[in-house]
Write a protein that binds this DNA or RNA. Structure first.
Lengths: 317, 317
DNA sequence: CCAATATATGAGCAATAACTCGACCGGCTG
DNA sequence: CAGCCGGTCGAGTTATTGCTCATATATTGG
């Protein structure tokens, strides 16, 4: 009885202290005087108020939900980095939000003093992100491509995100002077022995940050739409269980990189599994849920940038 | 456009900072790193988050409402002190809550180092408050009565709150050795010239704290119920506009002390209007609303202890 | 009833946050 | 185009807070 009475009055005081502190904005010293206790006790009351969940914080801003989702994704998939951008209700597939986050990550990395290597994959978000980078002077940094930058028609410029980024940042850049896919495993072996290629790959493998897009493997797979692989090759990948691809390496629903099929002819820098360096994937949309989840499950990635709607779906189940 | 974009992203960052600070519990240093800004900026973002009302605090405790009500009463009636105790739903007329608050005020005052004078009025809350005081050693303080402590039947003990308080605290005490009412104005003048009486009154007038009950003047007026005034005297007071009394001085709806009637025969220490010393009234209940409001309006009091329900009614209109 | 063990308290210190200042930047105006 | 103005930034200073440890105070079991 006495104890419960005591507890109650203590919680009452904690509530008072919390109110005065958080709502009225007093200092703990003032609170201590008002409740006529020592400052130390006032501090204890305030922290009791917190630990007893007497007080709750409500952040009335779309970002709040995003932060919460990011935290849960981080916990669920054991990520080193996770950002969730608000979904624009008027334009749910819009990559602008993600691009802004990705750009922030790039800028942050580029702002570092010590020489840093950034490796870049492909994808819409990647391109949009680079477009948002503010011009800056980073001659000590290096930007390197994880994938060949020669497209099926032989042009080099189409996907040349790396060159654009280097242009904006004055960083040295290393495009991968290869087609994304070559015609055979043998040809790949041969090309990978070229000194210029191994140099680029070595740099890429030592990158401090890998930023990549995530593609789904389905009827609308970007690899096929862009003409990198034929319909037959796509179907074969699907038959082998492929659900997604990162830097053109296809992987199955568990995030295991497929052995065989078009993967044998990819010239991209291979994944290290589980990812050691900070490897951030950026993607959104219902079509990519399976691919994203697989990549996270298989630890092809240890970082993620996505949007609110996609984050929610990833967290289901 | 650029400006609004900028504003928006700034608010976004503020929201992120606020989330990380209040919800995730990071330090501003960590936040600064995460958002790659300086500590100072992180601090600015957090405080922006506050000033823009992006974040709100919700205190889930009955006390929260009380604190809020107390603040509003303080503002509305320009009070130096105000406490609102939760109303016990099972027992709405219960004075325990108020008494606890009043006791806290008394203890706080008594705990002071420098010699202090506490003047006490009458009322249920007063008595209950004193009963809650923990025994303590305050030989340097003085406790004095604002009202005569001789009741109509001649007994001195019935209302002797002061003696009880002095007993518990070892403070010197000064009961007022007079009846509450005398039979005529002339008799009052005569009695007030007695040295023992003037001494007590002088002490009372120099009190550092006055703590008084508030009585209503209606059919159930305590003054009449306890036999201090007759039914006829009560009706006369009501005819003169009296709605309440403090230390037996009746006042009207504007808080003006009635001139005439039983007020001419009261021996209590008179009010100074507006109150200079901290003068705290304690009362609750629907019957007393008018009296309490009048006392506050007329600045007979500059402090109040009441309960939640009463506070709400006082704030209406 | 006493002793032994929890529990709460206050002083002092290290960490953190808030504030103040001068410097800088970009836009606008004369 | 120079210069002013409003706003922002970071460095440094001061205030506030969180924490540790030694001490005092309840509580419980013997």
């Amino acid at each position: 009885m006495a104890a419960s009475d005591n507890d109650k009055s203590r919680l009452d005081d904690a509530a008072r202290a919390g109110w005065l502190y958080y709502i009225a904005g007093h200092t703990q010293d003032e609170i201590a005087k008002k409740l006529s206790v020592s400052r130390a006790t006032a501090q204890r009351l305030v922290s009791l108020c917190l630990s007893e969940r007497l007080i709750t914080f409500r952040l009335e801003h779309p970002i709040a939900a995003c932060m919460e989702l990011a935290k849960r994704l981080k916990d669920m998939f054991d990520l080193r980095y996770c950002e969730v951008a608000p979904t624009d209700p008027a334009n749910p597939g819009n990559v602008a939000g993600l691009a802004e986050r990705a750009a922030a990550l790039l800028e942050q990395t580029l702002r570092a003093e010590k020489p840093t290597i950034i490796a870049i994959g492909t994808g819409r978000v990647m391109r949009a992100a680079v477009e948002q980078i503010a011009p800056m002077d980073c001659p000590n940094h290096q930007v390197v491509s994880l994938v060949g930058n020669i497209s099926p028609d032989g042009s080099a410029s189409f996907f040349d995100t790396v060159a654009r980024l280097a242009d904006l940042t004055k960083a040295r850049h290393y495009p991968m002077p290869l087609p994304v896919f070559v015609s055979s495993e043998a040809e790949r072996e041969q090309l990978l022995r070229i000194a210029a290629v191994t140099r680029v790959r070595t740099i890429a493998e030592n990158a401090d940050l890998r930023l990549v897009g995530i593609g789904q493997i389905d009827q609308g797979a970007q690899l096929h739409v862009d003409g990198f692989i034929t319909r037959e090759e796509l179907l074969e990948l699907m038959r082998l269980g492929a659900v997604g691809e990162i830097t053109a390496y296809a992987f199955d629903a568990e995030g295991r990189v497929i052995e065989g099929a078009s993967n044998l002819r990819v010239t991209s820098v291979p994944h290290r599994v589980p990812a050691q360096t900070l490897t951030v994937g950026a993607a959104l949309g219902p079509a990519k849920i399976t691919a994203i989840r697989a990549a996270l499950k298989g630890r092809l990635l240890n970082g993620l940038i996505t949007d609110e709607a996609t984050a929610k779906q990833l967290l289901q189940r």
